[in-house]
Design a protein around this nucleic acid. Structure first.
Lengths: 224, 224
DNA sequence: ACGGATTTGTCACATAACTGTCATGCAACC
DNA sequence: GGTTGCATGACAGTTATGTGACAAATCCGT
């Protein structure tokens, strides 16, 4: 089923849209603010996003930009204003289409379909981060060494991804604890243990790590 | 320079569009009939096509279909009629966008740009997804293993399609719940059960799945 | 509308896998 | 040489997953 996320602050309109979309066979979810919508999309990406321009807090334009930053999802603006400036600005910000409220659900649905037709094809090669003989693919949830899959646990994988995302930079134990575990306090030795386990799996000589290196007194970093 | 082909029978409007588009930095050409437009596009493909719906002879819808047959060019309909039926029909026929005359040239230009951003590298849509000995045909609603049809239930089929569409990527139980079942909350174990049943049917050794694999703590993925 | 067959969702349980803590020992630093 | 920081192995508690059983819901032909 195709998922749609509706970001719209007016409860009545949002609900109406959600119901109409579900009638059309979509799995529709709603968000009342840009922040909520961004969070929802990050957690469980929908296949389309509808966004109103006039939102409390973060406005629609900014919302679009942030959605675009880490996602290629088709974005349709639903606005009450039929104004060239707004339309151009929204499209420039990264939106794919702009419709003016009120809009017939059939039209909306057709526009979404047309967009997905485009988006699908332009699609997907799973991205891979490479560190010498190491390959890390966050999307595939997979780590390979010399092309061979390496079984890593969830925590190890998250830790590795975190380090890979900031390749070449030191991350302190505190930073890792907070980003990987969500702890904002806790025993920093925990990080050591997991780094150790990870090394056993991804380093050819775990005692003399080449990629996952310690910076005494600072933390760890992943290098090429 | 970006080329645009304008298919519009009204000389005044066509000329006005051509001039405005050139002002915007496009290399614009015109055609007064669908036949002429199709010929022009075949001979020297433009990067975008604008087409009016009301054309003498071959009408706009048919024109779009024929353009689509051998070309993946972004097509924008420019029509005088703001009618849901027309919009839906045009998009279904293969158009990418539909704007109502008169339209601000800045808006048109922005829409063209947004479309080109999406324009795909020609990739014929595959109707059968293959994973080793497994064949999944979403359109035919059929799954085969070594060429033999495998009876799967509707839920299993949707689940399989969802995984197949995102081949090689992990999908969390949440994502699957929301995309296959439309639940946005619920018991994640439900996914496990159906994955298990699916494995019984599509894996040669269900206890050691080769395609429908578990990523502990992350979710499931389908791989080749 | 009815009854049987199929499908779906829930539950409970077994088990394998993972996590965090701790203690110990080594290495680097001053 | 003393101190601090780090690596590592062991271990027990916790969690995640696979699976069989079962009841509710749905489908389907009559």
């Amino acid at each position: 089923m195709t998922g749609v996320l509706v970001i719209e602050d007016d409860d009545r309109i949002r609900l109406a849209l959600l119901l109409a979309l579900e009638d059309e066979g979509y799995a529709a979810r709603g968000a009342a603010t840009a922040e909520e919508g961004l969070r929802a999309q990050r957690q469980d990406p929908a296949d389309n996003v509808l966004v109103d321009l006039m939102l409390p807090g973060l406005d629609g334009f900014e919302c679009i930009r942030q959605l675009r930053r880490d996602d290629d999802v088709p974005i349709v603006v639903i606005s009450a204003r039929d104004d060239t400036h707004d339309i151009v600005a929204a499209l420039e910000a990264g939106a794919d289409d702009y419709v003016v409220k009120p809009v017939a659900i059939k039209e909306l649905s057709a526009r979404l379909r047309a967009l997905r037709r485009r988006a699908r094809a332009a699609a997907p090669a799973v991205s891979v981060l490479t560190f010498g003989e190491l390959e890390i693919s966050p999307e595939a949830g997979e780590v390979r060494r010399d092309g061979q899959p390496v079984p890593v646990t969830r925590t190890e994988f998250r830790l590795l991804c975190e380090l890979a995302e900031h390749a070449g930079r030191v991350l302190s134990r505190q930073q890792l604890l907070s980003r990987v575990w969500g702890y904002h306090t806790g025993d920093e030795r925990l990080v050591d243990v997991h780094v150790g386990r990870l090394r056993q799996k991804i380093e050819s000589d775990p005692a003399n790590p080449r990629h996952l290196v310690t910076l005494r007194g600072l933390g760890y970093k992943l290098q090429r």
